[in-house]
């Protein structure tokens, strides 16, 4: 973090991958070496990315790089800042404020446990930083399952990665879509319809989830029905956010700031909020 909480670091876009029609993944590097050294993210954290002239917006980091000063995030072009980002090219400069917020690692210690990751649509990118972390420390965890749901097969992000993951022996990936196309041979239906396919060791499973609010809501309802302890349900929360540093007040849910108290919360925290989280 810059000591002046409103001032970003200058960073360079080093690569752009097209994910879907409106979604791109950006690799970014902080330019100044001294500032880059200070930037070390943990899984679940986010950054505020600036396009100077358009503003700034928060994006969950999607990898857990060992090298400081580099990061990856995935953006769907749908608003002022994200559309401005969509116009940018490799080598262009943006501003980066962060890393901000807490980490999946700040919640229950899931080492030695089964891991179930449940992602919906553009909710997979923030979870990917944790997935990355688990792969980097695979021996620390037991069974590893990822459920990924999207509206259509074309709406899935990281398609190149998903086929890799499907072939892995130490990971079980199950995908589903709401609406199939003619080439789709996988599951059809919302992500909770996959639950009966799982053989869960309930007391020893930790769930990490992120997706549209309505999905998270039903995922949590179903997990609670299965008897999963509340502390073992870990979710990210999202809100319209401006400053990202706990001052502007936009992202508050009850007395929690999504930006500085979150974005990662477990269900014991979520259920106690004075407002509906989803």
């Amino acid at each position: 973090m810059n000591p002046n909480i409103y001032v970003p670091y200058i960073a360079e876009i080093t690569d752009i991958k097209q994910e879907t029609g409106d979604t791109r993944t950006y690799d970014v590097r902080i330019k100044n070496k001294e500032e880059a050294r200070l930037f070390r993210s943990r899984p679940g954290q986010f950054v505020e990315a600036s396009v100077f002239g358009a503003g700034e917006a928060p994006f969950g980091l999607t990898t857990s790089p060992k090298e400081p000063g580099v990061m990856t995030f995935t953006v769907r072009a749908c608003g002022k800042v994200t559309n401005a980002l969509a116009e940018m090219k490799k080598g262009d400069e943006i501003g980066i404020k962060g890393p901000l917020g807490n980490s999946f690692l700040d919640k229950i210690d899931s080492k030695g446990k089964d891991i179930l990751v449940i992602g919906g649509g553009i909710g997979l990118p923030p979870l990917r930083s944790m997935i990355d972390h688990i792969f980097n420390n695979r021996a620390d965890y037991r069974e590893f399952t990822i459920l990924y749901g999207a509206r259509t097969p074309a709406d899935r992000v990281y398609k190149y990665q998903l086929s890799d993951w499907e072939n892995k022996t130490d990971l079980k990936l199950i995908q589903t879509v709401d609406v199939a196309d003619k080439d789709w041979t996988g599951n059809v239906g919302v992500v909770t319809t996959l639950f009966p396919k799982l053989k869960l060791d309930i007391p020893n499973t930790v769930v990490y989830t992120c997706g549209p609010p309505i999905m998270i809501k039903f995922v949590i309802i179903e997990l609670l029905k299965l008897g999963l302890p509340e502390k073992q349900i870990v979710s990210t929360l999202e809100r319209y956010m401006k400053c990202g540093v706990g001052k502007c007040g936009h992202c508050c849910i009850g007395n929690k700031y999504v930006c500085t108290d979150g974005p990662v919360f477990d269900y014991t925290e979520i259920k106690g909020l004075a407002e509906e989280a989803f």
């Binding site: 503003g55 401006k242 936009h250």
Partner: peptide
């Protein structure tokens, strides 16, 4: 004390947040 944050361009190259 809640606030909004936005950018404003004052020329093609210069602006402020």
């Amino acid at each position: 004390s809640c606030f909004d944050v936005d950018d404003k361009m004052e020329s093609d190259t210069d602006g402020l947040r």
